[in-house]
C-alpha cells in the first residue's frame, strides 16, 4: 500500500513526487516526434492505431442515427476492406449508450465496448449524487467503460482528498462491470507538475486508465503531457506491478500525430503498453485519416476524403 486512504497520507505521498523538468519533457517529446516510421512498420502502426481508437461523438446534436452510423464504422471502419481491424471502443454520452450497445450487438460488434462519459462531463460541475447517478445509468444501459472527469476546481485548490474520494466512489460504482478512465483535463491543470500529481492521484484512487482531456478544451493531448502520463504509469507499475492504461484525447487528427503517440508509448512506457488494453486514442476525425493513409499504402496512390465516410 502506497497510502492508507487518508487525505494526509495522500498529501504526503504526492509531496514526494519529483517535479517535472518542463524543458526536458518538451525536448524529449519533440525529439521522439522526429522518428520516421516507414513501410511495414508504418502499416503495422496504422492498424495498431485503428484498433486503439475510441471512436467518439460527444455533440449536443448527436442523434440515434448518427450513433448508428458511428457504430457501423467502428465495427468495419472501411466498408470496402475487411482486413481493417475494428476500433477499440465507441465513446458516447450517457443517453446514447443503450442505442450504441444495441446497434453494435446487432451488426457483429459484440466485442467492441461502449464507453460513456460520466460525472457531469465535461465540466464535472454537479453534486456527487448526480455524478453517481450519471455513472449508474450508463452502466445499467450497457457501458463497459466509464470516462469520468475530475473536479479540477478542487484539485487546483489543493483539495486532493475530495478528488480522491470522488474517484474512489465512482470506482466502487463501476465495480467489475466497467473499466474506469479518469479524465484529468490537462489543459486546465496548467503545469506538468500538476499532470504528474493528478495522474498518481487517479491511479491511487483506482483508475484503470488515465485520460488527458475531454476534447472540449484546448490545449488537449499535447506530447509532453502524454509523456509525463506515460512516465507515471511506468513508474506506478514498478511500484505496484499493476499496469494502468493511458488515453490521450483531443487534438490527434492525423496519422502522423497518432504514430507519434505510438512512438512515445514504446519509448516511455515500453512495448507492453502497445495494446488497445493499455493505450487508447480518443478521436473522431483521426480514423478517416488513418484509413486514407492505409489506402495509400495499399494502392500506391493518394486517396481523397470522398472515399471515406462522412462523420
Amino acid at each position: 500500500m502506497i497510502i492508507d486512504g487518508t487525505e494526509s497520507s495522500l498529501r504526503a505521498y504526492l509531496k514526494t513526487l519529483p517535479p517535472v523538468d518542463e524543458v526536458g519533457a518538451h525536448a524529449r517529446a519533440a525529439m521522439l516526434a522526429t522518428r520516421s516510421i516507414k513501410t511495414t512498420s508504418k502499416s503495422w502502426a496504422i492498424d495498431m492505431a485503428i484498433s486503439m481508437v475510441d471512436l467518439t461523438t460527444l455533440e449536443g446534436a448527436d442523434t440515434p442515427g448518427k450513433i448508428g452510423t458511428l457504430c457501423a464504422k467502428a465495427v468495419r471502419p472501411d466498408a470496402m476492406d475487411a482486413t481493417v481491424p475494428s476500433v477499440g471502443a465507441v465513446c458516447v454520452y450517457n443517453d446514447m449508450v443503450k442505442i450504441a450497445r444495441t446497434k453494435l450487438d446487432a451488426i457483429g460488434g459484440t466485442s467492441i465496448p461502449v464507453a460513456a462519459v460520466a460525472t457531469a462531463f465535461p465540466s464535472g460541475r454537479a453534486s456527487f449524487a448526480v455524478k453517481a447517478q450519471d455513472t449508474k445509468d450508463a452502466i445499467d444501459a450497457g457501458a463497459a467503460e466509464i470516462d469520468m472527469v475530475i473536479d479540477r476546481g478542487a484539485f487546483l485548490s489543493g483539495r486532493y482528498g475530495e478528488v480522491f474520494e470522488e474517484i474512489s466512489q465512482i470506482r466502487e460504482i463501476c465495480g467489475d462491470k466497467a473499466h474506469l478512465k479518469v479524465i484529468l483535463e490537462t489543459g486546465e491543470l496548467v503545469t506538468l507538475d500538476n499532470v504528474r500529481k493528478a495522474s498518481y492521484l487517479a491511479m491511487l484512487a483506482g483508475a484503470d486508465f488515465i485520460k488527458t482531456s475531454t476534447g472540449k478544451i484546448s490545449p488537449a493531448a499535447t506530447s509532453p503531457v502524454v509523456l509525463v502520463m506515460l512516465e507515471a504509469v511506468r513508474d506506478y507499475y514498478s511500484l505496484t506491478k499493476t499496469r494502468i492504461g493511458v488515453k490521450p484525447a483531443g487534438g490527434i487528427r492525423n496519422t502522423k500525430d497518432a504514430i507519434k503517440q505510438l512512438v512515445l508509448v514504446n519509448e516511455v512506457a515500453g512495448p507492453k503498453w502497445l495494446t488497445p488494453k493499455l493505450f487508447r486514442i480518443g478521436a473522431s476525425a483521426l480514423l478517416n485519416d488513418l484509413l486514407l493513409q492505409r489506402m495509400k499504402m495499399r494502392d500506391g496512390f493518394y486517396a481523397g476524403p470522398s472515399y471515406v465516410t462522412l462523420d
Binding site: 500506391g300 496512390f301 493518394y302 486517396a303 481523397g304 476524403p305 470522398s306 472515399y307
Partner: peptide, 9 residues
C-alpha cells in the same frame, strides 16, 4: 504522376 493518380484532384 502523383498529381495524376491523386483521387482528390
Amino acid at each position: 504522376p502523383w498529381a495524376a493518380s491523386h483521387m482528390d484532384i
